[in-house]
Computed example of a mutant assay.
Amino acid sequence: MYEQLKAIYREALVTEQEAINQPDNYYWFQDTALARFGLLKTAVTHNEWQLLALQCHPVHPPTKTQTHAERFWERVLLTGASPEQNVSESPFAFIHFYFKREPQDYDEVKQAISGFFPGNGIMLWTSAQSGVIIHESAEQPEDIHELTELLAADLFLDAHLFHGPMMTDLTIAETIFSRQKQLFYLARLTYPKQRTFQYATLLPLELIKNDVLDHHPSSFHPIDARIKDLDQEIVDTVLTFLEHHMNISSAAKKLYIHRNSLQYRLERFTEKTGLDPKQFLDAVTIYLTLTKHRVASFVTIEQKK
């Protein structure tokens, strides 16, 4: 692979040693032989990058020194190598990140994140704008929303973060990482204004993800059909009501309407669908269905691009 690419890109293809002083000028990949190489960004089109990403693993830009922990997690998560042990000595969680634009200085980003996770945050890049922090600690980190504010204030980076659950099983680490990465992508499409995500809040999205991607009629279909006949105002009201923990006062305040107006819209929803948003089991069904609706619309848009 390396020799074939060298024949095409010539001096635009380099090794780590050749680009150690200017690694951020290159897109970095690791092939199946675990050899890392860089391609000059100005020499690679977006379509070429996508094709290369199918054959090789995109990796973070190299630094002058890579720790043993960084090399270990890069092998486990990005190259599919089997871990030397089945269980980690300490619990770990994946914190996925995505920046709306490519950072100007990767070292500054690493320093900012290292300061937020002192001594237990290992950072890997999976593309020029995204990557993962492996948080190795039994203790939960500070509110990750504070990290988005830090990155915005100090580096002017608009960041999205997804905090996965703690785990110890290394044998499924790559699988969990890949599934979370896909879920994070879907979450950003579904909730574009939200900056931080916790796994518990995305569980409904995880449950209906495969149902959305399956083009056959699902068990949600009868409810879907009834909801399509409703005014969008009523649908938005019910969703806001559920997202505010079924609290009428809080939801009404969010929507800038009177409590009685909100109550009326909930009753209209029940008349049309037969489901009562104020009843817990009905609320679960409604929330999953409305979330599926929202995800399906974004997936359809992406597929048309």
Score class of each variant (00 low, 15 high):
2 Y>P: 03
3 E>N: 01
6 K>L: 08
6 K>H: 06
11 E>M: 06
12 A>L: 01
12 A>R: 06
12 A>S: 10
12 A>D: 06
14 V>T: 05
17 Q>W: 02
23 P>V: 09
24 D>V: 09
25 N>E: 11
25 N>A: 07
28 W>T: 06
30 Q>C: 15
34 L>F: 12
38 G>Y: 06
38 G>E: 04
40 L>K: 14
44 V>R: 13
45 T>G: 05
46 H>S: 07
48 E>S: 13
50 Q>T: 15
50 Q>H: 13
51 L>C: 11
53 A>N: 14
54 L>H: 15
54 L>V: 15
58 P>L: 07
60 H>F: 03
61 P>R: 08
62 P>T: 08
64 K>F: 03
64 K>V: 09
68 H>E: 13
69 A>M: 02
72 F>Q: 15
77 L>K: 02
80 G>Y: 06
81 A>W: 06
82 S>R: 15
86 N>V: 05
90 S>G: 08
90 S>H: 14
92 F>M: 00
99 F>V: 13
101 R>I: 14
101 R>Y: 10
110 K>A: 14
111 Q>P: 13
112 A>W: 05
115 G>A: 11
117 F>M: 13
121 G>W: 04
121 G>D: 09
121 G>Y: 03
123 M>I: 15
128 A>C: 08
128 A>P: 10
129 Q>F: 00
134 I>H: 08
134 I>P: 09
134 I>N: 07
134 I>G: 08
135 H>R: 10
137 S>Q: 11
137 S>D: 13
139 E>M: 09
140 Q>P: 01
142 E>I: 02
143 D>A: 05
143 D>E: 04
144 I>N: 14
146 E>K: 14
147 L>F: 10
157 L>K: 07
160 H>C: 00
161 L>A: 12
162 F>A: 08
163 H>S: 10
170 L>H: 01
172 I>E: 06
175 T>L: 02
177 F>H: 12
189 L>W: 01
190 T>V: 00
194 Q>D: 07
198 Q>I: 11
203 L>I: 13
205 L>D: 11
205 L>R: 10
211 D>L: 11
212 V>I: 10
214 D>I: 02
214 D>C: 05
215 H>S: 12
217 P>W: 04
222 P>L: 10
223 I>Q: 05
223 I>F: 05
224 D>N: 06
226 R>E: 03
232 Q>D: 11
237 T>Y: 02
237 T>G: 04
239 L>T: 08
250 S>T: 11
250 S>I: 02
250 S>F: 03
251 A>G: 07
255 L>F: 00
256 Y>S: 14
256 Y>H: 13
257 I>C: 14
259 R>V: 02
261 S>K: 09
263 Q>S: 05
266 L>R: 12
267 E>N: 11
269 F>H: 00
274 G>E: 02
275 L>M: 02
277 P>T: 01
286 I>H: 09
287 Y>A: 04
289 T>N: 15
293 H>E: 06
293 H>I: 02
295 V>F: 06
301 I>C: 04
302 E>A: 13
303 Q>P: 09
303 Q>G: 10
304 K>E: 06
305 K>Q: 00
